[in-house]
Design a protein around this nucleic acid. Structure first.
Length: 374
DNA sequence: ATTCCTTTGAAGTAT
DNA sequence: ATACTTCAAAGGAAT
């Protein structure tokens, strides 16, 4: 079993590493906030890249004294900037997430399997912010956009994206750590994420001054409806309800599950050879977070472009406290567990296609693609 | 119709 | 062991 961990129960989760939260992208952000010029930014970038190439620590590129100094300067500012954000808005998620009032049951039954690419998950997903059409009987992640935020993302929650567009940020509080100490459970993980900075910034439309939907759609306690199934009693099965796909079996369970799903979802077009992977990867913590919060961002910013939205969500993700992130890490861990149960023989390798495109050059300018010699 | 963009994290591949 | 790549979601934009 490819995903079966051999070391311990929490290998399913992210590695427990405490990593400082000062990645380069934030530096870029902070730099912009501080009024650094584009040239400064380019200099800093190039110095960082050069250093990271020279040194054998590509993940810790802030070795240049000047870069360190600048990064530290701007980081101080940034800490303050999002502290209010956390205190004001996001921390409320905790309450919402675990409050679990009035769990109405699963409106998701009979819907398609999110792991199946032809399960038409995306047809409705997130376009309807209330309930995501999710797993046929996926008990873990209904993917409804509000189950975490629980309506606590009130309209006053600052949209923390638009330094670039000059959106005002809330007042500052000094005591926000620059890193996310991880919970003792070892669920949380912060990755240093080189791509945070090195990738070109997708143009984000202005969003701070127009929020026509924020008061109605994305907020308000009345908007809390479906507590996440994972928040059910811990004495229950992790899934909350028995999963029909996890059934006692004597035969080839893998193939049975697989074929049943395939029949359900792709029978009409079976003539065409299925080109896409049948079973998709389980979502990681950030993907789960995105699913939850996308609607909020769309509502607050009236954005539709996913690339821009994802940038915002990436920043928000970094602004989350460790507790808030750990919820998603825990969810993701359970997702992987369930996925393993559903598809014991599945491997991410199944969907892995070796691409010839030199995509990496676009994504990571510092990396030069070298064709492998035979 | 397909691919790109953009994000983070998990897992795969390559060295 | 480490570095790098691919894929998960999403939907508008570009091809």
């Amino acid at each position: 079993m490819p995903q079966m961990n051999s070391a311990g129960e929490d290998d399913l989760g992210a590695s427990d590493e405490m990593i400082s939260f000062k990645d380069e992208g934030d530096q870029e952000e902070k730099i912009r906030e501080n009024g650094f010029t584009e040239r400064d930014l380019a200099d800093l970038k190039s110095s960082l890249v050069n250093e990271s190439e020279v040194a054998s620590h590509p993940r810790v590129p802030e070795t240049h004294p000047e870069a360190i100094r600048r990064a530290q300067d701007v980081q101080l500012v940034y800490q303050d900037k999002f502290s209010a954000h956390m205190e004001d808005g996001i921390k409320h998620q905790d309450e919402g997430m675990y409050k679990g009032s009035g769990y109405p049951g699963y409106p998701f039954l009979m819907l398609s399997d999110p792991y199946l690419s032809n399960g038409s998950v995306s047809a409705l997903s997130n376009k309807v912010p209330v309930v995501q059409p999710s797993h046929g009987v996926h008990p873990l992640i209904p993917y409804n956009s509000e189950s975490f935020s629980h309506g606590s993302h009130s309209p006053h929650l600052p949209v923390d994206l638009n330094q670039k567009q000059g959106v005002h940020r809330p007042s500052q509080t000094p005591d926000v750590p620059t890193f996310y100490p991880l919970p003792s459970g070892g669920v949380g993980q912060i990755s240093p994420s080189m791509g945070w900075q090195s990738q070109p910034v997708y143009p984000i439309p202005s969003c701070g001054f127009r929020q026509p939907y924020s008061a109605t759609m994305s907020s308000g306690p009345s908007y809390s409806r479906f507590p996440h199934p994972l928040m059910l009693s811990p004495s229950m099965h992790t899934t909350g309800i028995p999963h029909p796909a996890i059934i006692p079996h004597s035969g080839n369970k893998d193939m049975d599950i697989y074929e049943r799903n395939m029949k359900q979802h792709s029978e009409p077009k079976r003539e065409k050879e299925p080109k896409k992977p049948a079973i998709k990867k389980p979502l990681n913590a950030f993907m789960l977070y995105m699913k939850e919060m996308r609607a909020n961002v769309i509502a607050e910013c009236t954005l539709k472009e996913s690339a821009a939205i994802n940038q915002i969500l990436g920043r928000r993700w970094h602004a989350l406290s460790r507790e808030e992130q750990s919820k998603y890490y825990e969810l993701a861990r359970k997702e992987r567990q369930l996925h393993m149960q559903l598809y014991p023989g599945w491997s991410a390798r199944d969907n892995y296609v070796r691409k010839k495109k030199e995509k990496n050059q676009r994504k990571a300018p510092g990396f030069q693609f070298r064709p492998r010699l035979p």
